[in-house]
Design a protein around this nucleic acid. Structure first.
Lengths: 226, 226
DNA sequence: CGAGACATTGAACTGAATCAAAGCCTGTGG
DNA sequence: CCACAGGCTTTGATTCAGTTCAATGTCTCG
């Protein structure tokens, strides 16, 4: 978004290819090697941490424009991985080349920093969800966040957006059991606030939802996409 | 750490001063204006999000070397703030100047990116704590993390480190009630694994603790300090 | 049609929150 | 040097949000 034609060119010039990953497959885990960077071009993916106990925490959902630095992700240790939720199209970059440009071009480096920061803002809010909101508030908040992110990407209609997540994804992202997610979702629907069906999320009463869970979208800033 | 003399010089040259903040005071909130960046030079601080309901989530504890980009923090919206826990010494930089250098010097920009990434790794693990570990596991994990961070900064003795946090800080960071923190802490002490007293955290059985909460320090990478 | 994955519902259980009192330091002022 | 105020910590009793266990239902696709 804050990138002009020339910067886009600069980035495109270090592009080394693209990669297609099928729904459900691993994009990156501790067994992967490689130092490349990627951008999620289309589809949804998730970053997760699996514990010894078998429990899983989804730390973020990746959508169009999300940036992945393999070298960095892999340093996190076992248990961390990124997996495709839907079919996914990735743009690949050589990390070395990218970092060369990145050092040579102030606008570019700022774009990457902005990207990292907006990712972090999401994490802060997500953590607050899990730590200090009730199950229903968490869900309401998460659904509004997701709708808003999709809207910013131009993927949303007036009151709906694509929604490929299953209830167990919600559970693992919100730190809840999937049965409880099911019950809370049902209640939110009975209130006439949201509905999920046919792979879509319908926000039927944005105002009530927002009031209920104290949603303020200012932490969701527009991000550069390339 | 990956910075050589020249880069340090480069950074020092955009330093605009320092600032002292007393324990308990606000370093930054939505009422602050300013675009500067800062480095925490000494002391402990916390980044937190306050909800309408009065509940608070501490998203991170800042210690020596933590980097704060005011411009970015302030964009997060109401409710977010950074506050000093102990007396704190900050180094100030002009954001504009820093970003100029940052664009002009590849090593420097990489240092800042590394900083952001290592911050993010902490958030991932912290989220897993809150979402998928039991209260006692969370505490055990957090205490090991804290000890390890302090050790990497050279602040720790063989089995102890400084620990200025109160039980209510732990509660707000882990998403628990302070009473429950108290009970769990007591149990961890009775097991002979840790003790907190006189402003210090004593790790009395690192191995057992680590085994108990599935602690793996690889997400805690050494970071550049300036 | 049948298998597997996902969703729904109900009942019993439990980890952690809340509510309610005391206890215990530490610094401050008389 | 003692008293006592305010901020922490500790402990106990009670309640509740969310988990677990156990079925049953439903969709989709080969």
């Amino acid at each position: 978004m804050p990138l002009d034609h020339e910067e886009l060119e600069a980035i495109q010039s270090v592009r080394t290819g693209s990669r297609h990953v099928r729904a459900g497959e691993v994009i990156l885990d501790h067994e992967t090697d490689g130092e490349e960077c990627m951008t999620l071009f289309s589809g949804w993916a998730m970053r997760q941490r699996a514990l010894e106990s078998g429990k899983v925490q989804i730390t973020s959902f990746l959508m169009a424009g999300s940036f992945i630095d393999a070298g960095f992700e892999l340093a996190n240790g076992d248990g961390y991985s990124i997996e495709a939720i839907t079919d996914v199209e990735l743009c690949l970059f050589s990390a070395a080349d990218l970092k060369k440009r990145f050092g040579a071009n102030a606008v570019l480096s700022r774009a990457l920093a902005t990207l990292a920061q907006s990712e972090e803002a999401l994490l802060f809010e997500h953590m607050t969800d899990i730590g200090r909101r009730s199950a229903m508030e968490r869900l309401a908040h998460f659904l509004l966040e997701t709708y808003t992110r999709q809207k910013m990407l131009g993927m949303a209609g007036n009151d709906y957006c694509p929604f490929p997540l299953r209830q167990h994804h919600l559970a693992d992202a919100m730190g809840l059991s999937f049965e409880h997610v099911n019950r809370m979702l049902k209640e939110l629907k009975e209130k006439g606030w949201v509905a999920i069906s046919g792979g879509r999320l319908y926000i039927m009463d944005f105002a009530s939802l927002g009031r209920y869970c104290d949603f303020d979208d200012s932490y969701l800033r527009p991000r550069p996409i390339f």
